[in-house]
Design a protein around this nucleic acid. Structure first.
Lengths: 248, 248
DNA sequence: TCGTTTTCTTGATCCAGGTCTATTGGAAGC
DNA sequence: GCTTCCAATAGACCTGGATCAAGAAAACGA
C-alpha cells in the first residue's frame, strides 16, 4: 500500500481497495476492486470514485444523457425506469449491493433509463473509458467486465422468459424468492427477516401489474403462509413450496 | 492478401476477410472480420470458421452444453428457445444476418437456450477464448465485442419494456416494424416485399401470445391496411401510422 | 398426382387481471 | 393535537386474450 496521499481537489481518490473509504463495505465477492485487482498497485485508482452517496429519491443519471460511468452498488438499492409513449413510468430494474448499473447504455453511449435511489445508497462510480484502457495490461479486468455484463444479460433473459408467461401470483412469489436470494448473498445477515428496499407500486410496475393486483396477491400469499411481510420486512417461510409454485 | 493456402484437415480456415468464402457475403457494416480488423494480417484467422452452413431445422447448439463459440449470422435466420418448467417451448429470440448468437452464455459459460435454424442458414463461428486472447493487442476488437454485447443488451431491454405492457395487436405490429428495419439494413434489397424467415407459431411464442391470437391480429392488421402478408412475403404500407400505433 | 401431416385460420366461450371507486392507514407539515 | 397527502387495501364490474373445438390450407413424402 503505497500512495495513500489524497489530492484534495481531485474528483477521483487515488488510494486503493483497502483504503479508508472501503472499510466496512462488506462487498467482497463481487466488488470491482477486490476481484480483478487483488494485488493492485494503485495505478487503477483513477478509474473509481468510491462510496459515492445518493440519498433516497435522488437521481443518479438521466435518460438520454451521455454515458460516462458504470456504477456498482455498495449499499442500499437503486431502480431504473423509463417512460412509455403514453407518458407513464415503468420500472425496468432493481439493483442491490454488488449489482452494476448503467450497462444498458453500452450500445449507443447514452443512458437508456433514469436511475433513482430507492433508499439511501452508496455506489462506486467506474469511469468506463479508463476502465477499458486498463484492460490491455490487466487481463483479469477484461474478464470481470465480460462476466459482469454476462450476469446482466442472464438476468434480463430470465426476466423476459417469466415476466409475461407466468400468472400474477407466480410473478410476485418469484420476485420475492429472487430478492431474498440476492439480498442474502449480498449481506450474509439472516436476521429477523429482510427489509424490502423499494415501494410496492414500483414492484407492481416492474412486474407488469397494477398496485391493486399486487396487493391482492400479497394478501393471498400471506393467507397461504408463503410470505410474511410486515413493516417492510419480509421472510419466506416455505421456499420449497414457493419454488415449486413458481416453477424453479 | 497473403496466405490464401487452405489446410485441408484444419477446422479453422487460415485465410482472411476477403478470402473466397467471404465473397458474395454481403455483410459489410456489421461483419466481425470487416469492422475491427480492416487491415488484418491473418493472425486472427484462427478465431473464425467462416460460412458454416446449418440447414433448416438443424440445431446449432444445445442448452446446458459448454460455451465455446459465438456465432455471427451471415445469411438466413436462427431462433433460440428454451423450455418452461411445464415443458412447453418458448422462443426467446430471432437472429438475422449480422446478429451474434450465444451471448446469453457469457455469464456461466453454458448455453442458456437451444439455437435452431429457421431456414437454411450460414454462420461464422467465433472461438471465444481466442477472441479474448487477441483483445490485448487489437484494441478495435475489444470495442467490437463490447458494442456487440451492448446491442444485444439494448435489444433485450427494449423487448422487455414492450413485451408485456402493449396489447397484442401492438406487439404484432411492432414485431413486423422491427423485422422490416433489421432485414432492410442487413440486405439493402427492397424488392417485392421481404420474406418472413420464421414460422407463425414461433412468432406467437416469441410475442407471448397464442397462434390463434396472432392469426386474428394479422387478419385485423390486413383489414386495416397496415400490413400486407402473403406467401411468407410482407410489406408495411403505412409505417408512419404503424409506428404511431405501437408508440414509436 | 395423391394422401398424410403439419400449420394456419375462424368461431364460441370463459376467466384472469385491469379499471373504477371507495376506504383505510401512515408519514410529513403546521 | 389536527390536517393533508399519498400509499395500500378491498369490492364490483368489464374486457382482452386464452382456451376449446373444428375446419381450411399449405408443406411434405411417396
Amino acid at each position: 500500500m503505497h500512495m495513500k496521499s489524497s489530492l484534495a481537489q481531485s474528483q477521483w481518490p487515488v488510494s486503493v481497495a483497502t483504503a479508508p473509504a472501503c472499510e466496512g463495505c462488506g462487498l467482497v465477492e463481487r466488488c470491482f476492486l477486490a476481484k480483478p485487482l487483488p494485488d493492485d498497485d494503485g495505478d487503477c485508482a483513477d478509474i473509481v470514485r468510491r462510496r459515492y452517496p445518493i440519498e433516497r429519491g435522488e437521481r443518479l443519471y438521466r435518460r438520454n444523457t451521455p454515458f460516462t460511468s458504470l456504477y456498482q452498488v455498495c449499499s442500499g438499492s437503486l431502480k431504473t425506469q423509463r417512460e412509455t409513449p403514453e407518458g407513464d413510468l415503468v420500472v425496468t430494474g432493481f439493483f442491490l449491493p454488488g449489482d452494476v448499473v448503467g450497462i444498458d447504455a453500452l450500445a449507443d453511449r447514452q443512458y437508456q433509463s433514469d436511475a433513482y435511489a430507492n433508499i439511501d445508497t452508496e455506489v462506486c462510480q467506474l469511469d468506463f473509458e479508463r476502465l477499458l484502457s486498463h484492460c490491455a495490461h490487466k487481463p483479469g479486468l477484461n474478464a470481470w467486465i465480460i462476466s459482469m455484463i454476462g450476469s446482466y444479460v442472464r438476468r434480463k433473459d430470465s426476466d423476459l422468459s417469466w415476466s409475461c408467461s407466468l400468472q400474477t401470483h407466480q410473478r410476485v412469489l418469484r420476485f420475492f424468492l429472487d430478492l431474498h436470494e440476492r439480498l442474502t448473498q449480498a449481506s450474509h445477515t439472516q436476521s429477523s427477516g429482510l427489509s424490502l428496499p423499494m415501494k410496492k407500486q414500483d414492484i407492481a410496475s416492474y412486474l407488469h401489474m397494477t398496485p391493486e393486483t399486487l396487493s391482492r396477491n400479497l394478501a393471498q400469499l400471506r393467507r397461504e403462509g408463503l410470505l410474511h411481510l410486515h413493516d417492510n420486512r419480509f421472510t419466506l417461510p416455505d421456499t420449497t413450496r414457493a419454488r415449486a409454485i413458481t416453477g424453479l
